[in-house]
Design a protein around this nucleic acid. Structure first.
Lengths: 206, 206
DNA sequence: AATGATATTGAACTATAGTTCAGGTTATAT
DNA sequence: ATATAACCTGAACTATAGTTCAATATCATT
């Protein structure tokens, strides 16, 4: 289900194929197609954020102002569309964690990690459902998720090395402990208290 | 959708109606029907425990050794069947909390409450999904749930009065904090650590 | 054993949501 | 301006799961 995310590196190459050289046929998407693709991604992002993985294709198409068929023209399946949307989120997440690795106080890194995830889960239901459960994902997303696990591991290890974080905590505990943030009854106020409790519980007991 | 959960209080009354007195027609279910009803409840309990609210009616019928139609004869809808199963669980839960109210150490009460809920959520997926979310429920179940909330409130208040439990915790926080226990990745070992973290976080910070 | 109320059966109905595709439309190169 | 590949449309198809009901079978009473 590879997508045609191709760019034109050198327009001339496509027009004047040189003998001997292996010419690469590169297709530039039509302007309207590119615009629709953007609209679809935007609508899908909003719908998945609001409704979670249960977001309906018809609803996304309606929001994007296109027919369902257009969704399937750009993305082969619902899963593919979801991943196109989520992959971006996961990459932003990974980039953020990188900045936490240089935090002087390792415990602060843990705090910021959880606060970031909490905010994300509050605003994006699909985000919470994806990092919590282990749905069937394509190669790219799985790889990104694995990379994320490695980064989180580093955040945890740093705080464990200083004795601030419980020594027995593992990466997999994080999404589990934050699962409550994806419940429908969660509010920003409750979230505040929720995080305090979790963070307090994560500190090494005396 | 009231169910015919009627018992025969006085067989004679049904056979020899007395003049003047308003006779109440009571139907005793047939023996095979009673047995099937039991089998269905048993199968439903197991299926809901294993598959959560997504358990399929066909699967339950197969497990019970009856046709789907029989399920609908005894219980009007899937929701009704679910509630017949869950109501029992909730009532057992309520009975258990009662015993915690006489616990000399209020904090121990909180600990046991969470341990009980954890064990329940590990063994019964529908239990976790029901106390966490707020699905559309019938009157009886809603009432039982409300009563449960009252009991949990008492457990919390007692521990707050002694200053052991954080003062800002409310009843609604409990299912949220335990939501992670209903995830598919949860194992008994992880559960142990999970509870330690939550309980530690719930203690009044110094 | 006969009778009739009660219960069971399972194929068919319904609703929902993902997916397809034949035919019409549009952007772009010539 | 025209040709044509790319694109879009939306009704229809498929799969799944809850639900119904007419035909059939069974228990319990006489």
């Amino acid at each position: 289900m590879e997508d045609n995310q191709l760019r034109a590196p050198d327009p001339q190459a496509a027009q004047t194929p040189v003998a001997q050289e292996q010419t690469v046929r590169v297709r530039v998407p039509r302007a309207d197609a590119r615009q629709n693709r953007g609209r679809i991604l935007e609508a899908a992002h909003a719908r998945f954020a609001a409704d979670g993985l249960a977001a309906e294709m018809d609803a996304i198409a309606r929001d994007a102002g296109v027919a369902v068929g257009t969704l399937y023209h750009h993305f082969g399946t619902k899963d593919a569309l979801l991943e196109a949307v989520v992959l971006e989120s996961l990459q932003h997440f990974a980039a953020y964690i990188q900045t936490l690795l240089v935090e002087p106080n390792p415990w602060k890194g843990v705090e910021r990690l959880l606060h970031y995830m909490a905010e994300r889960q509050l605003k994006d239901r699909a985000f919470g459902e994806l990092i919590g459960a282990q749905p069937t994902l394509r190669a790219t997303t799985t790889a990104t998720k694995r990379a994320l696990g490695g980064l989180i591991q580093q955040i945890l290890s740093r705080a464990q090395a200083t004795g601030q974080l419980r020594a027995d905590v593992v990466v997999g505990d994080v999404p589990l402990l934050l699962a409550g943030l994806s419940e429908r009854t969660m509010t920003p106020e409750t979230c505040q208290r929720y995080l305090e409790i979790i963070l307090s519980g994560l500190r090494t007991p005396p």
